[in-house]
């Protein structure tokens, strides 16, 4: 069966965009036509030892390298970006990530792609100022390519198989780099070498900002972080599962100066990020019980163990950090970039 389509007027941007709309392709933004020549250029640059790709839910179709490359072209990727896309695609196929559930859910989760290691500099992946925002091609296109593969091959079309109640802007693209940290990087703490390129994926909500300009000690900053995490509308409260604290470098520096480490930070937040029972409705408390979640004394914990809070550093100058809750029924999964 051929995977080649002969479409007229593809070289006309408006006609191509209209053709995509007719077929239900794309995320609403214009795409680059995946001509055979562009796809071939993508594939020609691939290294050996590529991950094995399995069937993508909900549709159950197994992508080929050509179809992944076609989506990468559509997203605006350069050939050098494709290995990162493939690593991320491999990671979301880990059973623990729960791809089917994360794509079909009413929750607004998106496939977050955190990239660590020298590959960030090599590809220009932004781990600094506005790394979670617009303005950097690599961040924009790598996350977008993954979303397009899940849309086109997996079939996670909004309103049909993607049943998100409101969705989120992160569903367009959610990719950023891990910056230099006063501690070992997240990837190294997860067992990878400092010289390896690593992607870590998680079905995540968009970042929740933690603004703290006034605190002057690590303990004070963590008080603000704990307060931000202690909100009753998070999936993590009752579905449990992973969440990520993305410290801005200035907050991280203060914490490091005061002797905090990733392990002591998450142990502290486990104890202090608590949701008072009085902040949870009676109906929700009943539902939490059905899911096996009871308060610890007069408050609920955020997730079910301190180890479920992951920690990384990214961002530029300023007194902001971010807490990134997840779908809950997912995992932070890391893969080496081939």
């Amino acid at each position: 069966m051929t995977d080649v389509l002969d479409l007229p007027d593809v070289d006309d941007a408006w006609a191509w965009t209209a053709a995509c709309e007719e077929r239900g392709w794309g995320d609403g933004l214009p795409t680059v036509p995946p001509t055979e020549e562009r796809v071939a250029a993508m594939l020609a640059a691939l290294p050996p030892d590529l991950p094995h790709l399995g069937p993508l839910p909900p549709r159950g179709v197994t992508p080929t390298l050509r179809s992944v490359a076609a989506n990468a072209v559509m997203a605006g990727c350069r050939p050098a970006d494709l290995p990162v896309v493939l690593a991320a695609l491999d990671a979301v196929q880990d059973e623990a990530y729960n791809l089917h559930g994360t794509l079909a859910t009413t929750h607004p989760c998106a496939p977050m792609v955190l990239v660590s290691g020298p590959v960030c500099d090599a590809l220009g992946i932004n781990a600094g100022g506005n790394c979670l925002g617009q303005g950097t091609r690599a961040n924009a296109v790598i996350g977008r390519a993954l979303s397009l593969v899940l849309l086109h091959v997996g079939g996670a079309r909004p309103g049909v198989l993607d049943r998100s109640t409101q969705g989120s802007p992160a569903k367009y693209t959610f990719c950023f780099g891990e910056s230099d940290s006063p501690w070992e990087s997240l990837a190294v703490r997860r067992g990878f070498g400092a010289d390896e390129g690593v992607v870590s994926v998680m079905a995540a909500e968009p970042p929740h900002n933690v603004n703290d300009h006034g605190s002057t000690t690590g303990a004070e900053i963590l008080l603000t972080v704990a307060g931000t995490m202690a909100q009753p509308g998070s999936n993590n409260v009752y579905v449990r599962g992973p969440h990520l604290l993305l410290l801005g470098p200035e907050h991280a520096a203060t914490l490091h100066r005061d002797g905090w480490t990733p392990d002591t930070i998450r142990a502290h937040l486990w104890e202090h990020a608590r949701i008072p029972v009085s902040h949870v409705s009676a109906g929700n408390r009943r539902q939490f019980v059905e899911w096996g979640v009871e308060p610890d004394g007069d408050a609920y914990t955020v997730s079910d163990a301190p180890e479920n809070l992951h920690l990384a550093v990214a961002g530029g100058a300023g007194k902001h950090s971010a807490w990134i809750p997840s779908f809950g029924g997912t995992a932070l999964v890391s893969r080496r970039v081939p």
């Binding site: 036509p33 995946p34 069937p55 179709v61 179809s67 086109h152």
Partner: peptide, 13 residues
């Protein structure tokens, strides 16, 4: 113009 179908792949069993 010929493009690679971005939805293509191996059908489910």
């Amino acid at each position: 113009m010929r493009i690679v179908d971005p939805t293509s792949g191996t059908a489910p069993e």
